[in-house]
Simulated scan of single mutants.
Amino acid sequence: MTQTSGDQQGDHQDLLLVRHLTDPSYETCWHAMQGFTNNRDIDTPDECWLVEHSPVFTLGQAGKPEHILIRKDVPIVQTDRGGQVTYHGPGQLMMYWLVDIKRRGVGVRDFVSIMEQSVIELLLRFNIEAHLKDGAPGVYVNGAKISALGLRVRRGRTYHGLALNVDMDLTPFEWINPCGYAGLETCNMRQLTDLPLKMPLIESQLLEIFAQRLSYDTVKQVS
């Protein structure tokens, strides 16, 4: 796998384009993902969007307002991803995967597993041993959730993705039942490793792992 930048072209089936979003608004990003997915065609390369959102609670399609226990001055957005309620904020890496899984020959459950296993492999590089929970998507460390997943699939194409808690204020998770589970603890990488945590390094390593698991030949940074 090679990483490139600039205007180099690659076969759309083997190319993953990576964008760093400059607008931290969740709703702006969400609607842009919908537009991208609605307008893409068989020749559109897959993309990964990276961002740290401004503080926001999001409710998935199964989300119930009663899982928001304390209403603070944090926006609440009802969205179209799967899952229940979660929190996004600074210090949390958002990786949005806009992937034609039909073209790549990957089912939805396998794609979710690829995301989970990619996070687990990344965490091992920082000496953090993570695990899965039966019936509860996401990645956990000693029972505490460190990475949440949520997807929407339309005509064999995904949007939304995963959130990885890197070095963030976890207090807002105490105001909700994270992912619909009362009393579910959350954690972040900062609590669990003494190794330096630089967001660009975490991004590049997780991208590398994911791209290898989905057999992309080229990862291209674009603006």
Rank of each mutant, 00 (worst) to 15 (best):
G143I: 08
E47A: 14
T193S: 15
I114Y: 11
Q61A: 11
R71D: 06
K133G: 11
T158D: 03
T158L: 05
R81F: 01
T218S: 12
M199I: 08
D41Y: 07
E203H: 10
G138N: 07
V112P: 10
W97V: 01
I68L: 15
D169W: 01
K145N: 01
C29D: 04
Q221W: 12
M199Y: 06
Y181L: 07
V153S: 00
L59F: 03
D100C: 09
G183T: 04
P90K: 09
T44S: 15
R40H: 14
S113R: 14
L122T: 02
L50F: 08
Q78V: 05
H160T: 07
L162Y: 01
N39L: 04
A211E: 06
G91T: 04
Q61C: 09
L93Q: 13
E27G: 01
N165M: 05
K145D: 00
C29R: 00
Y181R: 00
Q13S: 13
R125W: 04
A136M: 11
L201G: 01
Q212T: 11
R19L: 05
V77Q: 13
L195R: 11
C179F: 09
A136W: 00
H131I: 00
L15T: 06
W49P: 03
S147V: 03
F126N: 04
R154C: 06
T193N: 12
P90A: 03
V222Y: 14
V99L: 12
R71H: 11
F111P: 02
L122N: 02
Q8K: 12
W175H: 15
D167P: 00
K145F: 08
A130D: 03
D169M: 08
M199P: 00
P65D: 12
F126K: 06
M94I: 12
E116H: 11
D23C: 06
D23P: 00
D11N: 14
M189R: 07
N188M: 12
T218D: 10
S118A: 14
E203N: 03
G82V: 00
L192H: 08
N177K: 09
D41R: 01
D167C: 09
N38E: 15
V112D: 08
G89P: 00
I120W: 03
L15G: 05
Q117T: 07
L170C: 13
P24E: 12
Q34K: 10
H67Q: 09
F173N: 02
K72H: 11
T28G: 13
D169G: 07
V18R: 11
W30C: 01
N127D: 15
M1E: 03
G35K: 12
F57V: 02
Q61I: 10
G82K: 02
I42K: 13
A148D: 08
N142W: 05
N38I: 09
W30H: 12
K145R: 13
P65Q: 08
T22H: 02
M168T: 08
L17N: 13
